[in-house]
Design a protein around this nucleic acid. Structure first.
Lengths: 232, 232
DNA sequence: GATTGTGAAGACGTTCACAGCA
DNA sequence: TGCTGTGAACGTCTTCACAATC
């Protein structure tokens, strides 16, 4: 299991979503062609993406929805509980905390943090908003797998550093800034500081999405058709 | 100007954000190396990305922040007003409507739509929530460049179709579903129906981000270092 | 007969080395 | 001399054709 395109992971997430929909409609079998149509990719792509992780189908028959779903859940690590803290309880943080669907996959919000004295102590979704200063001690006592960063852009870097210092391994960054891992000069080479080794940062930037959309509306010919049909 | 990688557009957005920060700090000159460090990419990449659109620097000197910023704003189409309608006024739609930063780039929310009778007529950010049935006539009378789709997943496809039927050219889809353009069979070939020709769909899916993050925490070796330092 | 799984070919994006210019 | 701009080399991802097998 080596060298899997990042894009393939995103597509696996899409396939999983589709399998859930099929299951909800009591459809028990599918095929690479069917999945491809629903996902807006080619059937080749579906088969190749799945092949990175194993053999989940039956030649001549296709895939059993329940089996493929179970396997993708396993591959994506969604058969376990993920404990999440949210940093920032402004409108965005609250929208995230209240967004349904996270709990479907064992993502559990275990704490909320902010720096604004006016909101510390308030209850959101059954959780008390705590001060950022208490993040570290919270993480020492409780298992925290991920931090969701929903603070203003100019606080995002510091908040990310606090998360990493506290020992959190994954950051989902909603702020429109590039999070910079701390590096140190060792033998003339820049390299990641110890606390940033093995930290994963994923970004969700809807302002960037707006801007990309504006660009592609102006330059539609540059857009690779998002949902190419007629596979094979 | 042909054949520009989609990823390059995303990076341009990042460069632009960095240039704004530099300008706010009264830094007037920069270089591909400096931009690269701040963006977490290589200097080669920066130069290549910019080269797709023109020559914005001076050899031996670097880039003038103000000039490069102006050019990127132009390239990305952000020197004009974009009129946006938001479909769905739940927590997510409200968070979007109230998120600061959109207005910085002339993205103007001109109307909000929903189907829930309880919210029709309410005021959000100075706009009255209207019923989806009135979307079409609204778009006929007012210029609408984009629709932001913030409805529950099972309504996303219908809402997208309504937007496209009304003549909206761009959709920023926040729902965790693949929007399917309508296709028709013509001479045995699937092809896009007329109303979907030239429609651009961009997705912002934070549930997918959560799942990717979970995967990469479990498989850190598969992650291409998000911020590779030491360029050149 | 149908559909998966996969090595090989091709397309695409990134990296590079260096030519071009201040 | 220093840094940009860019054709060419490289590597990665996608597409493909077909062998495997139910």
């Amino acid at each position: 299991m080596a060298d899997i395109p990042t894009a393939a992971i995103s597509r696996l997430v899409t396939y999983l979503r589709i399998l859930e929909q099929l299951e909800a409609q009591d459809i028990s079998r599918t095929s690479s062609t069917d999945l491809a149509e629903r996902a807006g990719v080619t059937a080749f792509q579906v088969r190749k993406d799945l092949a990175y992780f194993g053999r989940f189908g039956t030649r001549g028959m296709g895939y059993t929805v329940a089996i493929l779903k179970r396997e993708l859940v396993r591959v994506l690590g969604l058969n376990q509980t993920w404990n999440v803290v949210i940093i920032g309880t402004g409108r965005l943080g609250q929208a995230i905390a209240n967004y349904p669907g996270a709990s479907d996959y064992q993502f559990q919000y275990v704490a909320l943090f902010d720096v604004n004295p006016a909101v510390i102590g308030q209850q959101i979704r059954g959780l008390t908003v705590q001060h950022m200063n208490d993040l570290r001690s919270f993480v020492e006592v409780n298992r925290v797998d991920m931090g969701f960063l929903a603070v203003p852009p100019d606080h995002a870097q510091d908040a990310a550093q606090s998360l990493v210092d506290a020992g959190v391994r994954g950051i989902l960054n909603f702020a429109p800034v590039v999070i910079q891992p701390r590096t140190l000069e060792r033998a003339g080479q820049h390299e990641l500081s110890d606390e940033w080794r093995n930290v994963i940062v994923e970004n969700v930037d809807f302002l960037a999405g707006m801007k990309r959309l504006a660009f592609y509306i102006l330059n539609p010919h540059l857009k690779d058709a998002p949902n190419s049909e007629d596979q094979e």
